[in-house]
Design a protein around this nucleic acid. Structure first.
Lengths: 408, 408
DNA sequence: TATTTATTCGGTCTATTGACGAATTAAACT
DNA sequence: AGTTTAATTCGTCAATAGACCGAATAAATA
């Protein structure tokens, strides 16, 4: 039942392209008959039968009944089989660890979460392995059949090495070779990506930013960060540090020591910044931004003013994003940013700032955004492993300025 | 001699891919023999002979002698023939019009420029047609054999419609259907792109930003603007307005009327802004930023202070760029930005601002950057028209969240 | 003579086309 | 009403064309 699916022993580029388009059609139109697949893909019925036979032998597709009621012979309907492969998405937050399992067709099979092991570091990695294993076994999937794993983590993830570079607020994570350790523990290669970037991809896949080619995800919670999606691609930056808008020179003197250290904007609108401003303005004793919101709601003028300023600065950051990358949509997320009342305030600020205001939405996936985004990347990578044509897809590079003229 | 080259009557995907890789090898390694081409591309000698024969019949390649001095039979050497096609790059500046001609191999054949017709609008378009025609004929190329034309223009170019949307400082250009009119006048489809974006691509192709995947081009001249290149792609934004950093909320009150109208940063560091600040600080009579630089050089403290402030604000803008998109390199361009003394000042400001300072260079192509970038885009488009595989290259889209379950 | 280049020939893989049998519904006829 | 016939659709078989490679062979040269 759980025979490992062999990687397709593909011979020619042509057949790989055929397989790819059949797979894509199955992904978006199943259940579907071979005849309809042939029409949709433009391939011949003959080729279609060959490809579907091969898919069946690899466990990629399965029959799901027949057509009926139409004139003519009935057709066998096919869909992608869960046997084809599974993917795992993991969101390692400072407070909460979430894991989700999906099959090759993108059907989310299960999701589980726990408080993150507060000892951090290696303990958290062990916890990930335990939770992932449990999730796989509960869904009758042997862990070894999970073919693609993506981990969402706070901090700056170097896109080349996969190292976590800026110390995240999970103890001792920066000093571990997370990719290596987790890959070993889980028995499969693991990809790491910044949690905000993955939350953005989550909203694009299953959330409030579907079918949009240019989006920004502005996360405001304990810290502030940005995810950028331009031309249908994630913008990571040279060192994976794109979107570190805590360092935007807004809301204070950027040359000040605190600004240089933790970032000028972060110093004002990060959770500790908000609490500090509330305290300095004479507010009563609180220890979370949520409590400041509660105070404001019961009429505390200091709390209101502190939050107004927070919204104003967030609006300035959004205006900077609009000026720089011209998104079609800005999604507000994070424990503070996703609050509708706060988002409304930011939108009002933006209306006064920007020559062409951009649509603002709040995250619809909330805390699940990261894990959903991790699933989407894991799924994309699985698809590419089976049906990728990346070596063909590269754009034709232009010739360098100096031409070799040597004869040989 | 000037038989129009027919578009390749390609049959199969496989052959198109072979043609593509042979073309790419010719682009980067000519002159080269068929045997070497076979080694480089991994294709068989047999296939190579077929492809080269086809290229020869289409006028895409030509022989350029034989090898000699080696043991064994001599080999015929081939290179791309200029007969294969020509491209035109045009930079329509407010002051100066530049046109350049290149062949399919990217060899720049000629370049010409004139002061832009000050009457603007339709007159400028006529001037473009005249200059382009002259350039083509002077190089023994019939204008109809130019297969790809790209125009660099100030203003926001809508990436979908090609319309020029923000009124540029060329009279009456915003109200014309520039794509339609120019395409008709030149007898070939014309692509329009923002001049700063093209200057950036120029520096990437032939200038100071070669082989860099993440670059920003910060242009400071009469206005201020930014070109963004991330993941090896130009970032245009949803409306082509990415990089309109004149609207960054830096250097003043962003709610002020002037800031909202022409942009907060632009109001300070644009040419009129610099001159206004110099005037308001009690500076003597000047009518160009260059003159302010000259005053500063001869010891005018007001001029120095105004320029310091300009560099400081430019540095803040650069810091914002770094925080948001994490480039590997920032290129400073424009009549003000490209000045080495100014760039040094900006770099010094940045050193105090940014946690990880980014390399700063000044434009090496200067005024030619725009036209070179236009050539590079025109060339890319020509190559794609012949050898593009964009329909194959698209990433496999993920399935939508809701699955159809209807039987048919 | 040894080596390298280029061509020819045969074999394999893949996709398409057209013909055909199988399965089903709709229509027509006794 | 029950049966036969026609129409339609699905899927397979066989033939053919395009494209690739490898081996053998001819040609040219240090």
């Amino acid at each position: 039942m759980t025979m490992p699916v062999p990687l397709p022993a593909v011979t020619s580029v042509t057949r790989q392209l055929s397989r790819r388009s059949v797979f894509e059609a199955l992904l978006h139109r199943s259940p579907i008959s071979r005849a309809d697949l042939a029409k949709v893909t433009g391939l011949s019925k003959q080729t279609m039968s060959e490809v579907i036979d091969a898919f069946g032998q690899q466990g990629l597709v399965r029959q799901v009944g027949r057509t009926s009621g139409n004139v003519g012979r009935t057709a066998v309907l096919y869909e992608l089989s869960p046997e084809g492969g599974h993917v795992l998405g993991i969101d390692l937050g400072a407070r909460r660890l979430t894991v989700a399992l999906a099959d090759i067709a993108g059907r989310v099979l299960a999701e589980a979460d726990e408080p993150t092991d507060s000892r951090g570091g290696a303990w958290a990695l062990d916890q990930i392995a335990r939770l992932s294993d449990r999730l796989a076994r509960d869904n009758h999937t042997h862990p070894s059949r999970i073919r693609s794993i993506v981990l969402a983590t706070p901090g700056v993830v170097n896109p080349k090495s996969g190292a976590i570079e800026m110390a995240p607020n999970i103890t001792g994570l920066g000093h571990l070779n997370v990719v290596g350790l987790l890959s070993e523990k889980l028995g499969n290669p693991v990809i790491i990506e910044n949690d905000i970037n993955l939350a953005l991809l989550g909203e694009i896949w299953h959330g409030c930013a579907q079918n949009v080619a240019n989006v920004a995800f502005l996360a405001l919670g304990s810290g502030v960060g940005l995810g950028l999606y331009a031309n249908g691609q994630l913008v990571r930056g040279e060192n994976g540090a794109a979107g570190e808008i805590g360092y935007l020179p807004l809301g204070g003197d950027p040359l000040q020591a605190e600004s240089r250290l933790q970032g000028c904007l972060e110093y004002q609108v990060g959770a500790t910044g908000v609490l500090r401003r509330y305290r300095e303005a004479g507010g009563s004793e609180v220890d979370s931004v949520i409590q400041v919101f509660e105070r404001a709601q019961v009429g505390d003028p200091i709390a209101s003013q502190v939050l107004d300023e927070t919204a104003r600065l967030t609006g300035l950051a959004a205006a900077a994003v609009i000026a720089m990358v011209d998104p079609q949509l800005i999604v507000l997320g994070g424990s503070v940013g996703a609050r509708p009342d706060f988002a409304d305030q930011v939108a009002r600020v933006l209306l006064q700032l920007s020559p062409r205001p951009v649509e603002i939405r709040t995250s619809t996936l909330g805390r699940r955004a990261g894990v959903v985004g991790a699933l989407s990347v894991a799924l994309s990578r699985l698809h590419d492993a089976f049906f990728g044509v990346s070596e063909l897809a590269a754009a034709l590079p232009l010739p360098p300025p100096a031409h070799r003229t040597a004869r040989q």
